[in-house]
C-alpha cells in the first residue's frame, strides 16, 4: 500500500486589511507534483452542523501553497482551517491551523492619502480599500490641535471635499481606516499640511 503522504506543515494565516490568506510549507516528493486542498469550518458548523467542514473549490487540488480565503471568512466568528496533500490516489492526513482564526485580528494599515488645497478649499484623495472600509479624516488649523474636526468618509471614488480654509494659516490632515464589521481602526497616516492662497494650490 503506498506510503501515506506527510500532512502539510507550518500552516498559518496572513491577514492584512481584511484580506486573508492561508499558507503552508510545500510537501516535497521527488519527481512528483503535489496538490493541495483547503477546507474551512466556522463557529456555526462546529455548534450547529455536526462540526462539518466546507471545501473551498478555488483551492481544491492546487499546486500553490497559498489560498485566498477572504470570501469565506465573511463573519466575525472563530474559524478552523485545514489543508491536505494529494499525489494521484495518494492522500495525506489533514494539516490543521493551530488555533482559530477570527478576522478581528486582521492587521489594518493607515490609508494612502493625498491632501490638496484648491483655492480656499481643503480636499483629500484617499486610497480605495474596498467596501468594508470607511475613513476617519481629522483636520485642523496648525497650532490649534485642540480644535480638531473629523469627517467620516465612505465613498472615496473621487476627491473628497473636507472644508473651506482661511487664507494664511496651514491646515493639517491625517486619516485612519475604520472597519465597521470588526469595529476596529488602523493607526493614523502621516500628517500632511497645506495652505490656501488665493486661487493657487500650495504644498508644504
Amino acid at each position: 500500500e503506498d506510503a501515506l503522504l506527510p500532512a502539510p506543515q507550518n500552516i498559518s494565516i496572513l491577514s492584512t486589511n481584511m484580506r486573508h490568506f492561508l499558507t503552508w510549507s510545500p510537501v516535497t516528493i521527488q519527481g512528483e507534483t503535489v496538490r493541495y486542498s483547503v477546507e474551512f469550518q466556522g463557529e456555526y458548523e462546529r455548534e450547529y452542523a455536526n462540526e462539518s467542514w466546507i471545501p473551498i473549490c478555488e483551492c481544491s487540488l492546487i499546486t500553490a501553497t497559498m489560498c485566498n480565503i477572504t470570501e469565506d471568512i465573511s463573519a466575525t466568528v472563530a474559524y478552523n482551517l485545514r489543508v491536505r496533500a494529494d499525489i494521484g490516489a495518494r492522500r495525506s492526513e489533514w494539516g490543521t491551523l493551530k488555533g482559530f482564526f477570527n478576522r478581528i485580528t486582521t492587521s489594518l494599515t493607515p490609508p494612502l492619502m493625498k491632501v490638496i488645497a484648491d483655492g480656499y478649499h481643503l480636499l483629500v484623495d484617499l486610497e480605495d480599500m474596498g467596501p468594508a472600509f470607511q475613513f476617519y479624516v481629522l483636520y485642523w488649523k496648525k497650532g490649534q490641535e485642540s480644535r480638531m474636526q473629523q469627517k467620516m468618509v465612505k465613498d472615496v471614488s473621487s476627491t473628497v471635499h473636507l472644508d473651506t480654509m482661511e487664507a494664511g494659516p496651514d491646515y493639517c490632515v491625517k486619516a485612519q481606516t475604520y472597519v465597521e464589521t470588526i469595529n476596529r481602526s488602523s493607526t493614523f497616516s502621516q500628517t500632511q499640511c497645506v495652505r490656501a492662497q488665493g486661487g493657487r494650490s500650495m504644498w508644504l
Partner: peptide
C-alpha cells in the same frame, strides 16, 4: 462639483438635501 476652469472635481457626501459651497472663484 466640477470647476470648469481648473477641471478639478470635488465630491461631497451629505444626508440632508442642501449644500452650500462657499469661497469659490
Amino acid at each position: 462639483v466640477l470647476n470648469k476652469k481648473t477641471k478639478k472635481r470635488w465630491f461631497f457626501s451629505i444626508s440632508n438635501n442642501t449644500l452650500v459651497v462657499p469661497w469659490l472663484e
